[in-house]
Design a protein around this nucleic acid. Structure first.
Length: 554
RNA sequence: GCCCCCGUAGCUCAGAUGGAUAGAGCAACGGAUUCCUAAUCCGUGUGCCGGACGUUCGAAUCGUCUCGGGGGCGCCA
């Protein structure tokens, strides 16, 4: 829709140049935006203001010339010059009404576009260590990553979702030892639990599982022999829980990438070798360093510690090299905000390998503050009593949970009130949007009962009955859905779709309250049913992108 | 000390590539249901866009500085 306007303006500029009215042959990068106010028309452009310095004429004078050309297009009702030199374009109502036809014809496909042109994008998210259950912060990352993937797909990108499993290293040892000790305790031994072990209740559950499957044969095993066994067992068990939680949360990955597998395939060695070949490796203080400062990082980074073991970053460079070389046009990392210091070094890696680091996009997920009736719910991972995603989704439901996670920009703090998310009060935005869909379905059901004709074609006579201000306003909003999806994809900001839906519901509910859809007038009824059906379709399409259901009944 | 993010109405937040008189929701108060779902709607008002300077025809948006909040900071992940 907006693109069409941009083309009209472009043609107008070129023809004005052809007739010698303006000197500039190549139009400047003018904006086309939906007008903020009704009196400014449907769309506005700043083209004349940008041309003014080039033409050495007043912007309003130039605007006057272009205006005439734009007004000549058949879709255009009228065209005005306003303010400092804006050109405001008013479209004919018939142009807007055609949006309804598009929606009914395209159905679930309405809002999709080809702007991504099939470019391959990889989104890596959650990637929680398999050392415990997913907590609420992972849930936010899951909702954002999954919705982003949906939105990118809708905008025509070829998307792959991936989960990176940190299944080697010290934390896995700690996990193994923690489970081993708990299992000894369950078998009646007195143990002392070291400070740095995992203390959550789930450790005991995994230990009990272990005993159920393996009996008591490790009861008196020496720790250094037992830990690897328990580590592998616990890692697999916890990863399985994570998969289940995510599946129940509505998130499925295309690929699970194991750090251990990367190490075993020798990719870490190979990556270090390559960087070495490029001359960015040096040894100091007994450690092996990567000179990332040459690529904008603030410090050089250790890859191999003095004790010979590798850092986490060593695996990560192998992982990111692998991702970049898999040929994605963009790789997206969705990280917790506490990792933001990490971006510089990964960016440095990408550049050191000779790639443009614009292939990398990092999205940071800020912390979630869990509230209950406005009072903070205590969270302390250290005490082993952090709130899990499972607890929250079981309490408030997946729909409310996902919607709340997507209600804010991901890099902004989020207050998540459990009671609000559960409430059926009007101030709960999840239901506000879902109810919009359910309500329309109910209206259509009622109309069928009454024997009303559900319209199938779009003759102008029918559409001309949609002549109220509110109706046109709704239609315009429906028409902008595709642009919202495109911009949401381009900016990688899923919350824009959430806001769009709240606005849509905010237009529909008042309309419903003011106007009766099913009336004695069959033509008017048909026209309004058509509009309502379109609203329901777009609401459902938007909710689907967020991974939130669109119920027919509530 | 250095780096990153944030600062917009009482609260929680939107704000497009820099555009016109900066917007929602909530909270507060008052109202609406013989009629398609009241999980809804109608009405009542609030801003030094943290501050200063700069770039620009034009700045909440870009730059520098500054104040306040959060986070990160060589061999943790």
């Amino acid at each position: 829709m907006r693109q069409g306007i941009a083309d009209i303006i472009r043609e107008a500029l070129i023809s004005a140049h052809g007739d010698g009215l303006i000197k500039t042959a190549e139009p400047p990068a003018y904006s086309v935006e939906t007008s903020k106010k009704e009196e400014f028309g449907d769309y506005s452009t700043n083209a004349a203001m940008l041309l003014a310095p080039l033409e050495k004429k007043g912007p309003r004078q130039i605007a006057g010339v272009i205006k005439e050309r734009i007004a000549a297009f058949p879709q255009v009702e009228k065209c005005e010059v306003a303010g400092p030199g804006f050109i405001n374009i008013f479209l004919k109502k018939s142009y807007w009404l055609s949006v309804l036809e598009d929606i009914v014809r395209q159905g679930a496909g309405f809002g999709r576009s080809q702007t991504g042109a099939g470019r391959r994008v990889q989104v890596e998210f959650v990637s929680a260590n398999p050392t415990g259950p997913l907590h609420i912060g992972h849930g936010r990352g899951a909702a954002v990553g999954d919705a982003l993937a949906n939105i990118l797909k809708a905008a025509g990108y070829d998307v792959e979702k991936e989960y990176y499993i940190n299944d080697v290293g010290r934390q896995m040892n700690t996990l193994g030892r923690s489970v081993f000790l708990r299992h000894q305790e369950l078998l009646g031994k007195t143990i002392t639990f070291p400070e740095d072990s995992y203390k959550g209740e789930y450790i005991k559950e995994v230990a009990a599982d272990f005993i159920a499957k393996n009996g008591e044969k490790y009861r008196d095993a020496p720790e250094d022999l037992a830990v690897p066994v328990f580590s592998r067992f616990a890692g697999e068990a916890l990863l399985e829980r994570i998969r289940t939680d995510l599946k129940d949360f509505g998130v499925e990955f295309d690929r699970w990438c194991s750090e251990k597998a990367l190490v075993e395939k020798g990719l870490v060695e190979a990556t270090i070798d390559e960087i070495k070949k490029r001359g960015y490796i040096y040894e100091a203080e007994g450690a092996l360093w990567f000179r990332t400062t040459g690529f904008g990082d603030d410090k050089d980074r250790v890859l191999t510690k003095a004790d010979g073991s590798r850092t986490y970053f060593a695996s990560d460079i192998a992982y990111h090299r692998d991702k970049v070389e898999r040929g994605f046009s963009t790789i997206v990392d969705v990280w917790g905000a506490d990792h933001h210091g990490y971006e510089g070094r990964v960016r440095a890696l990408v550049k050191a390998l000779g790639y443009d680091d614009s292939v990398l996009k990092v999205i940071f997920i800020q912390l979630v503050a869990l509230l209950r009736n406005g009072v903070p719910v205590p969270m302390g991972k250290r005490e082993g009593e952090f709130v899990t995603l499972r607890q929250v989704m079981d309490e408030v439901g997946v729909d409310a949970c996902r919607f709340f996670f997507l209600m804010r920009r991901s890099d902004a703090h989020l207050d998540f009130d459990l009671e609000l998310a559960k409430s059926q009060a009007p101030e709960n935005p999840v239901y506000y949007v879902q109810y919009c869909h359910a309500r329309i379905k109910s209206i259509i059901g009622f109309a069928k009962e009454k024997g009303a004709v559900i319209p199938e074609d779009f003759d102008s006579k029918l559409l001309s009955r949609l002549d109220q201000k509110e109706e046109v306003e709704i239609i315009k909003h429906l028409g902008s859905f595709g642009e919202v999806v495109e911009r949401s994809a381009a900016a990688m900001e899923p919350h824009r779709v959430t806001f769009y839906l709240m606005e849509l519901a905010g237009l529909f509910h008042p309309y419903y309250n003011k106007n009766r859809v099913v009336t004695e007038d069959p033509e008017l009824t048909a026209a309004r049913l058509l509009l309502c059906g379109a609203v329901a379709t777009v609401a459902a399409n938007g909710l689907r992108l967020l991974g939130v259901s669109a119920p027919d009944k509530m």
